[in-house]
Design a protein around this nucleic acid. Sequence first.
DNA 1: GTTTACGCATCCCCG
DNA 2: ATGCGTAAAC
Length: 758
Amino acid sequence: MTEARIDYARLLNSAQYEAVTSIDGPLLVIAGAGSGKTRTLVYRVAYLVERGIPPESILLLTFTRKAAMEMLSRASELLDGRCQRVAGGTFHSTGNQILRQYGDCVGYGNGFTIMDRSDSEDALGLLIDRLGLKSSGRRFPKKSTVNSIFSKMVNCSLDLDGVLDENFPQFLEFGADLQGLYVAYEQYKLEQRLMDYDDLLRHWWRLLEEQPAVRKLLSQNYRYIMVDEYQDTNLLQAEIIRLLASEHPNVMVVGDDSQSIYSFRGARFRNIMDFPKLFPQARVLKLEQNYRSTQPILDFTNVLISQAREQYTKYLFSRRESEVLPVLASVGGERDQSLFVVRALREFQLVGIALEDMAVLFRASFHSYDLEVELARAGIPFAKYGGLRFAESAHLKDVIAHLRVLHNPLDAVSWHRLLLLVEGIGPRTAQRLINWLMTHAASATAVRDYISEQKKTAGMTRLEPLAALMEEITDPQRTLVERIQAVRSYYEPIAMRKYDDYPKRFRDLDFLEEWAEQYPSLQTLLTDLTLEPPDFFSHKADLRESGRLTLSTVHSAKGLEWRVVFIIAAAEGRFPSPYASYRTEDLEEELRLFYVASTRAKDHLLISYPMRFGGFQEQDYGGRPSPFLQSISRRVLQRVYGEDFHLKLQGDDAKQPERRKNPTGAKPEGSPLQAQRADYLPGQRLDHAEFGRGVVLKVESHHAVVVFEKHGKKILELHIPSPSTGAESATRRGADAERGRREDGESMGAGVGKPWDQ
DNA sequence: GTTTACGCATCCCCG
DNA sequence: ATGCGTAAAC
């Protein structure tokens, strides 16, 4: 057991080794993009298990369950199968498991059903109606808005007024109504044994906070806690961690403040900065060596993130040299962009890069519609991630509703949904039936009793098929798949009336039926469908083997990497999202999002923006590249026209003579802090006499900001040769030139001039 | 009194 | 393409 089989010191760099072997006490690891964060966690799991720590007492919290499973199976390969027994998953799924055991401690008796976002909104809609909040004349917030207000309250530990003041001042006048609605919603969920996503965290927290005995038990159980993607946790989650660690200090959190992209869900990257306050003895380690990307890609991403107002302290460097710069390609319209991507994909394929090693990323799911059409036409297989989820489409929710009332007959949200499917039943009749069910008999088969009781009323015969179905699927003899089949044969005629495109939807139901086979119980199936909904290519391994191109939102691409990454729709009005263009902190998050997208690339990064694009706000944007890119030097980001793009164009030495001929940059004479301004250009790497290797971030009139590998960010004073020369940095000239073009109204699409780069 | 049909605006990211 | 409010139909 004590015999070390893994040579950790040899397999890890010194910072990683420290992170892996410091197993006792609080530890914060700041891990830059591609710095081997996952590797570190995997080795740490193996190290802990190898040292004889029972795997069941290790808790690994990750952002998706997929990530957790992947890490555990890698750890198992490294060591042995014991690693699979480590407890792990998302905060929500872990909360779910714990609350299934201790639900009665927080007022939920035996069992509950988890609602997804649209279920919450349905419930809120019903309550808004019931409380008559809509008729009060003025415009009451939409139910989706109400949902996000309530969610912010929970995730940011604020009261209603706090959230309204901060984020929704336009709804301050509805304070009292919203407060009443909040209370009603709480009660509604409790009565019906429903929990929304936030409840899984909130009740988990309550359990730990209010039940010292349970807290002690759980904390003693999970002796070693690891949290991945800590920058995307919210206040409530940080509190949960603190409480889980009440009996020991063994908490390791890993994160990167530059990659915090979930503030809409309450994430606060400040949790990282505050970790040492929560755990005063915390050690802090930084992983700064990047093993993923080439140095030119990192030069670009370093400069990109330096535009953030919140200053970060990481400097990423790589040993992967390359001549190939990231490219910003301008294309005429969305169709031209798709053609550009397809053409470039083919070129990469020709030099031996497989489709599964490439990805196209975008800000919003609909940005890839045109490309999807073009890929289909070109016969290029792809898999898309992000956007609407499988279990959220109407037809699946319809089928699932029938299964949910089976599991939880109190679930009025699902009753409501499935009753409205019956012809002749509207909200009124549905409500009456639901009221009757709730007061008389809490069982799915009680529909029959209701019919008998109401026999006189016309229309009750319409409920006959439903009553028969409920009786059939309640039969304990039936397997899960048989029940789904029964629901389908009841539902499909309804769907045929409702949807013109029913064949496509029936194929989804086929998939559901197949998917359900692996589940031992209805409850676990229902939980997974809301917590970890399947996508059609559920394991990344499948995807890699399948020879498909990946299309993904940036959010869904978090933590992944590809040899070639395209970022499309990097245009003003697209990225940053126009919804996030008002508040500085929202814009900063968009910048971090762009940073996340860019740091996914290992070898090639190609960013494109259409000059014209469709959509309702078309007129407002003049076809400029994303503001995040506009002032970035051509030394780190090459500009081309999409139609001119060719692999050879990249890395053409003739285009970047000064960069290639003097790659180590300036070594100023005299004072180490002085240099001629012309020696310093943003993005330029240099080897400084005193501070060693670094990269120039910004050049101002009298100083330059340089980040050094060993010494971090330094401000170097610039010696200016002579004012009469009017020396201007390349950035300045570049920015002015670009602005000039725009103001002249010179259209790039007109084909005047060639790549701006020369 | 209830249900349904139709025209309307809206459309980001996610456990 | 789905979710809303309103008007016609049962």
